[in-house]
Simulated scan of single mutants.
Amino acid sequence: MVGVGVPLCVQCGTRSNPCRCKVVGPTVGFLAFAAAAVVEWPLGAFVYIFRHRKGRRIMAHPATVVYPSVTNAIPI
């Protein structure tokens, strides 16, 4: 039987907690990044046809804003 696993992201060497490793923050950040990317990348690709810079900003939003915000908000 094959099980479906949840993506698990680990970030070690941080100073945000005593263990110096984060698991929950990066994992939830990745899931939020993926959810935002599903919506924003097709939208950004469509906008890119008419306004190049705006389309690039929309497509970069999950990586530059969503992932770091969620990852840094959860210190564990």
Rank of each mutant, 00 (worst) to 15 (best):
F46R: 15
Y67N: 15
V66W: 00
V66D: 06
K22E: 04
W41M: 10
L8A: 12
R15H: 05
P26E: 08
R20C: 02
A36M: 09
Y67C: 09
M59E: 12
Y48S: 08
V24R: 15
T71R: 13
C12F: 04
A37P: 01
V38K: 13
R53P: 07
V66G: 08
R56I: 13
V24E: 10
P42K: 11
A73C: 02
F50T: 10
P26M: 05
V28E: 07
G29R: 06
A35R: 07
A34F: 04
F33D: 08
H52Y: 00
G29A: 14
V65T: 11
V24P: 06
C9K: 02
F30K: 03
V2Y: 12
N17T: 04
V10A: 15
C12T: 10
P7F: 10
P18Q: 14
R57I: 00
I76C: 07
V24L: 15
V2P: 14
H61M: 02
A32V: 00
S16Y: 09
P26L: 05
P75Y: 07
A60V: 04
C9S: 11
E40F: 14
P62F: 03
C9G: 03
V65F: 10
G55T: 07
R15T: 03
V70L: 09
P7H: 05
A73L: 11
R20V: 01
R51E: 05
I58T: 10
R15S: 08
V70S: 08
G5D: 08
A60Q: 14
P26F: 01
Y48D: 05
G55D: 06
L8C: 10
R20A: 05
